[in-house]
Computed example of a mutant assay.
Amino acid sequence: MTHLQFNLDLEVLKESVMNSDIDAVIKSAVVLVLNEVMEKERNDYLRVSPYERSEDRRDYRNGYYERELILNIGRITLKVPRTRNGEFSTSVFEKYARCDQALVISMLEMVINGVSTRKVTQIVEQLCGEAVSKSFVSSLTEKLDPIVKGWANRPLNTRYYPYLFVDAMYIKVREHHKVVSKAVYIATAITEKNTREILGLSVDHEEDYECWSRFLQQLKSRGLQSPQLVISDAHKGLQKAIQREFVGTCWQRCNVHFKRNIFNKLPKKDSTDVRMMVKRIFEAITIEDIRIFKDELISQFGNNSKYEKALAILEDGFEDTIQYMNYPEKIRPHIRSTNSLERLNQEVRRRERVIRIFPNTQSAFRLIGAILMEYQESIYAKRKSLMH
């Protein structure tokens, strides 16, 4: 059967909402594409194309019904295909509405709480075509919140995750009439089959030992077994929490963060050779070479006071930063840093900037959870396409 390939750049379309009137042609194009996607989904479900005869036929076509969908380009009406037995269900509404609804809800809550700007109010009117009321917000959140919460609390005991990545980022939230910073905790992992998965999300007051312990305990309560290796930055509270919650698990200090910490302590002038030797250490293929290159660096520059602080950092964090060398060579490039999680954080930040200040903690959890769900589904889709 024919495969449809298309990209909906919703950020570009949203920009057109903010800066100009919505072009009817754009809406029509999106409607045509999504209608065609749903038609293909029904064909795939039935296992036959229109007017085709086949013994593999699962059911019969039964016309269409209209359903509205709110996207960043505004409200559109789609023709949803039906089947006679009523068991066919399209993925379009779940796939494209969830993250956008989370964004809409956050904006609506800003308006209701009186913290919106004129532009936000205009965007809300364009997005929703509805009067902004608490009942309207409630009707949206009642549908979306259980989906996000269900995903965030799903069991983790169905498979083993040998490599766990954890990190925190900060957002701004309005609380008791004040704007405060809150920490967003995110955990991802690599499975035994070397596939990536987003495991958990939490929003807490700050990044400290107690908060990290709560987050790791939450993952364990959902069935997460102690991983072989946890990869993170060198936050003291996080290190302590890992030792307490995952007894016997090794800790890998993020290679990228570690080198950055060393370079920040080097003088800007006359440090080219030292920087090159630091890079050479972590580009080595064997753990023996890593140790040899490190000893050569210390031997050559250890008595130079200009490099004292940088080399002290190297000595102190060296062993924690080369733990990845104890694992199979193929997996090493993927577990020596938190780069994959950093990219995920950037995707969250890209959407979070639209809001800037969340109206409440639940709004932050809802939007970030929906973004993570969308990101995970894109990973699954990419993996599935590669298999075929």
Rank of each mutant, 00 (worst) to 15 (best):
H177C: 15
Q362L: 15
N19D: 08
G248Y: 02
D204L: 15
W251G: 02
K240V: 09
C211K: 13
L341E: 06
F6T: 01
K240G: 03
G74E: 01
H3V: 09
Y380D: 00
Y163V: 01
V179K: 12
N304R: 09
V184I: 07
S202P: 09
S54F: 07
L10E: 12
S91H: 15
I368F: 09
E245N: 07
R353N: 00
Y65C: 03
V203C: 04
R244I: 14
D316K: 15
K330V: 01
R42C: 03
F165K: 03
I186Q: 13
A312E: 15
L201V: 11
V180I: 04
N35I: 00
E377N: 10
F136P: 14
R42Y: 01
V278F: 00
K384F: 15
V354T: 15
S133Q: 10
G114P: 00
I313T: 09
R336V: 09
K119V: 12
D320S: 03
S28V: 05
E374L: 10
N35E: 01
E319Y: 02
L8M: 10
L201G: 08
T2K: 14
Y160M: 07
A97D: 11
V48Q: 02
S299T: 10
T2Q: 13
Q228E: 04
E142P: 12
R366D: 07
E66P: 10
S135Q: 12
T338Y: 05
M38I: 02
N85P: 11
K330R: 12
R350V: 06
N7F: 13
S305K: 14
V12Q: 15
M18H: 14
K220S: 10
S181C: 10
V166Q: 03
Q362G: 10
Y324Q: 04
